[in-house]
Design a protein around this nucleic acid. Structure first.
Length: 476
RNA sequence: GGCGCGGUAGCCAAGUGGUAAGGCCGGGCUCUGCAAAAGCCCCAUGCGUCGGUUCAAUUCCGACCCGCGCCUCCA
């Protein structure tokens, strides 16, 4: 069985397989614009992509994962100037922050992470090819635009009808689209190269059309061509990138190379809502990972919450959702512990699978794996996992080992790492002393004193959890 | 207006032409001096509304209601 995934362009469920003539499965994902900390909506998309990559690896595909860094655009230039930094210093700082957040969330680093600034020559070369082939024109100010009407199947990804281009001059509100003042021949044409303007400061590069900087869409076309070739297996991004970004990428690459079939499969993830609303700065519901950590959530819990809904449905992110994830993860750990005991393994022996180790057993988690392979159905897969863990039949040692082999692979695919809870902070001496007194009182059957001491501990913010042979202290 | 998505228990969320996974919360029980933890059990005759097809629909078709996304640089 292969991994089947919904393809945005064909709107069908299609298998993802290694092409016989390729050594690697090429996967390109649109990465972040580094002008500030990414928010959890961004991370939903990157986490879903990470689950896809991991799932493909477990399925035995050799994936080459490319995810770009957008480090030159209006926002990064403005941000750098506002911060009084060079563009390079400014974007590097936010790139570093992005990397730290990704690592915290358990995202595997892409195999290649190209930056737009580092690929200016490739972008210029692609624009030149488009001009030479008659797909682009140079405006009076030296900007270069893609001529959409020269791309006869423009709109094929989103199934938009561009035969009536005159309507494209207005937006949904009926207002003229004059957001930019460049001189385009048609309202639907888009910038490939933006001529140097005073507000760009020092951020310009030479080109055959004069100094300037690349447009947004061209970077992904140039970088995917550079690192994956004119055609590759899968292209991913947030649903909002479908149009115009991905539509433009297709047009640019296919017109520049003359080769059809830019990306064989389009993978788009739905948006994250917060408390039922679209995230926005004005609503104040744009959470960053740091803000969630500050609220006491672990990154594993956040990751669980981000993948707990199917990737093609919008997911409503709430604090309750992360709290639910906490309880669910604890249950997952308890169930795994029981299997480890049955198998005679320690937690330290419960390791992620070696990649390419596809022939090993799945045990009772076979079905959970099949569910995951069906359009990356993470919630369905988790449901199956819990169903197996709730099975009251005690497995034999051999069966438990098979189960653990399967479970380890599923947890790897989901990117969930168990048993990572930091040891609770040591209790202060005062608390330790009170606990010792209470334990002594309890042993002496002086329950009145024991209860009083428990209350004192509670007042100090500590709970005392009795065991048969001792006790644990836990902050409340 | 165009294109698209969705409405499943208190909350979250899968799924199927044959009678509703799972998680959270809640309730009960067992265990425990108390507390907690843990284990076990219970928790939608119902899947937006109304029609249609069918032996059978939540699942297919149609209409309608409601919510949401994109329609030029937002993951």
């Amino acid at each position: 069985m292969a991994v089947f995934l919904h393809d945005t362009m064909s709107r069908e469920l299609r298998p993802l397989l290694m092409k016989p003539d390729r050594a690697l499965f090429g996967m390109y994902c649109c990465g972040p614009t580094v002008y500030g900390p990414a928010h959890i909506g961004n991370f939903r998309t990157f986490t879903v992509q990470d689950v896809l990559r991991r799932t493909l690896e477990v399925a035995g595909l050799r994936v080459k994962h490319v995810r770009n860094i957008t480090d030159v655009d209006d926002k990064t230039i403005r941000g750098a100037q506002a911060a009084g930094q060079t563009l390079t210093a400014f974007t590097q700082q936010w790139t570093d922050k992005f990397h730290r957040d990704c690592q915290a969330l358990g995202l595997l680093a892409p195999h290649v992470e190209p930056s737009a600034v580092a690929h200016i020559p490739q972008q210029v070369a692609m624009i030149k090819a488009l001009v030479d082939r008659g797909h682009a024109y140079v405006a009076k100010d030296g900007s270069v635009y893609f001529k959409v009407c020269t791309c006869k199947d423009y709109g094929k990804l989103t199934h938009l009808d561009f035969s009536k281009l005159e309507t494209q001059g207005t937006n949904s509100a009926g207002e003229a689209n004059d957001a930019d003042e460049y001189e385009r021949e048609s309202a639907s044409d888009f910038a490939l190269w933006k001529s140097r303007k005073p507000e760009d400061g020092a951020n310009f590069w030479p080109s055959p059309w004069g100094e300037g900087r690349p447009g947004w869409h061209i970077e992904c076309s140039a970088m995917s061509l550079e690192h994956l070739g004119a055609t590759f297996d899968l292209h991913g991004g947030g649903i909002d990138l479908c149009f115009p970004h991905h539509e433009n990428e297709i047009a640019q690459t296919e017109c520049a190379t003359g080769i059809q079939g830019f990306a064989a499969h389009w993978f788009h993830s739905a948006h994250l809502l917060v408390d039922g609303d679209k995230m926005s700065k004005s609503k104040g519901n744009l959470y960053t990972l740091d803000q969630l950590i500050a609220k006491g959530f672990t990154t594993t819990e956040v990751r669980y919450a981000l993948i707990a809904g199917h990737y093609r449905s919008s997911l409503n992110f709430t604090f309750k959702g992360v709290e639910d994830a906490h309880s669910a993860l604890a249950k997952l750990e308890r169930g795994t512990d029981r299997l480890l005991v049955a198998a005679g393994f320690t937690r330290a022996e419960f390791l992620p699978p070696a990649t390419q180790e596809t022939q090993t057993a799945w045990g009772r988690f076979q079905h959970a794996w099949e569910v995951l392979q069906n359009d990356l159905n993470v919630p369905g897969c988790l449901g199956q996992v819990f169903t197996v863990l709730a099975d009251k039949d005690e497995p034999t040692s051999a069966q438990a080992r098979q189960d653990l082999s399967g479970l380890a692979k599923i947890l790897y695919a989901l990117g969930l790492t168990l048993f990572t809870a930091a040891p609770v902070a040591a209790a202060p001496a005062e608390v330790v002393a009170l606990a010792a007194q209470r334990w002594a009182a309890k042993q002496a059957k002086d329950f009145a004193a024991a209860d009083r001491l428990r209350q004192e501990l509670t007042a100090l913010g500590w709970a005392m959890l009795d065991r048969k042979d001792g006790y644990d202290l836990k902050p409340v």
